[in-house]
Simulated scan of single mutants.
Amino acid sequence: MPKQGATALVVPLPEADPLLAAVADRFPDAVRPLPAHLTLLYPFLPAGALDEQVFAALDEVFADQPPLRVEFAECRRASGFAALLPDPADGLSALVGELRRRWPDLLPYDGRFGAEVDLHVTVALNTAEATADAVTREIIPEFTPIRAHLREARLIAFHGQWQLRRRFEFTA
């Protein structure tokens, strides 16, 4: 569970919500209670540190971002974890690179998985190997490939539940 006041920059992926719902129907503990999304940077700055200067910097980062068309077909598996990777990932990787340049001390997932983490949509997390394997073999193939048109990033903050703080439309 995230800390109170934690924030994240995410890209919503409603096209993957049916996949997450199917996983949750069969394995409720495998899916987090969040809509499908790609995480650009988590944790971001603490909610108390968000001010107009930070919002202006984020506006700059996202100002020239065009909408992106991506597909999710490749599955990545690790211990108790299953995720889908975006293709192409370069536009999203460029966004992450710019965020990391502006806030170099912020490591994805506090550095638990290294300084660089592949962009992904989490499908199952912290679950038994048999569950992650079943998700990968039996459920994901029914829903992939997922084609998506990414149109915005969101800054969300955790206060007992995740709450929207700000939207950044991809309009360039």
Rank of each mutant, 00 (worst) to 15 (best):
Asp118Gly: 09
Glu116His: 13
Arg137His: 03
Leu9Gln: 07
Ala24His: 15
Pro46Asp: 01
Asp90Val: 12
Lys3Trp: 10
Phe113Trp: 07
Ala56Thr: 14
Ala172Tyr: 03
Arg165Thr: 10
Lys3Ile: 14
Glu116Gly: 05
Pro14Trp: 05
Arg137Val: 02
Leu41Gln: 07
Ala132Trp: 08
Ala134Arg: 11
Val31Cys: 03
Pro104Met: 01
Asp105Pro: 04
Ala63Gly: 01
Leu34His: 15
Val23Phe: 14
Asp64Met: 07
Pro28Glu: 11
Asp59Thr: 07
Phe62Cys: 13
Ala22Asn: 09
Ala49Pro: 07
Pro18Ser: 04
Leu164Asn: 07
Gly160His: 07
Ala36Arg: 12
Gly114Glu: 00
Phe170Trp: 02
Ala124Glu: 05
Leu106His: 00
Asp25Ile: 10
Arg102Thr: 04
Leu19Glu: 06
Pro145Cys: 00
Val96Ile: 08
Ala148Phe: 05
Val23Lys: 14
Arg26Asn: 10
Pro33Asn: 12
Ala47Lys: 14
Glu116Trp: 11
Glu129Gly: 05
Leu41Thr: 09
Val121Cys: 11
Pro14Arg: 11
Phe168Glu: 04
Thr136Ser: 13
Arg167Tyr: 12
Ala82Phe: 10
Ala148Ile: 03
Leu50Lys: 12
Ala83Thr: 02
Arg154Ile: 11
Val54Asp: 01
Ala24Asp: 12
Arg167Ala: 14
Tyr42Ala: 10
Arg101Gly: 08
Asp59Ser: 09
Gly91Pro: 02
Ser93Ile: 09
Phe168Asn: 00
Phe158Gly: 12
Arg166Phe: 08
Gln161Asn: 13
Leu68Arg: 12
Arg154Cys: 14
Val123Arg: 04
Phe55Ala: 13
Glu142Ser: 08
Leu99Phe: 02
His37Lys: 03
Thr122Ala: 10
Thr39Phe: 00
His120Ala: 12
Gln161Ser: 15
Gly111Tyr: 00
Ala128Val: 01
Gln163Gly: 07
Pro12Phe: 02
His159Trp: 08
Ala89Arg: 11
Leu155Cys: 10
Ala157Gly: 07
Leu34Met: 15
Val10Trp: 04
Thr39Pro: 00
Ala8Cys: 05
Phe158Cys: 12
Ala172Arg: 03
Glu142Gln: 11
Leu119Tyr: 11
Thr171Glu: 05
Leu95Ile: 08
Phe143Leu: 00
Gly5Trp: 04
Pro14Val: 06
Ala21Lys: 14
Leu20Ile: 12
Leu164Arg: 09
Leu84Tyr: 03
Glu129Arg: 05
Leu92Gly: 06
Pro108Ser: 02
Leu19Ala: 03
Gln163Leu: 10
Pro18Trp: 05
Ala56Glu: 13
Leu95Met: 07
Ser79Val: 12
Ala47Cys: 13
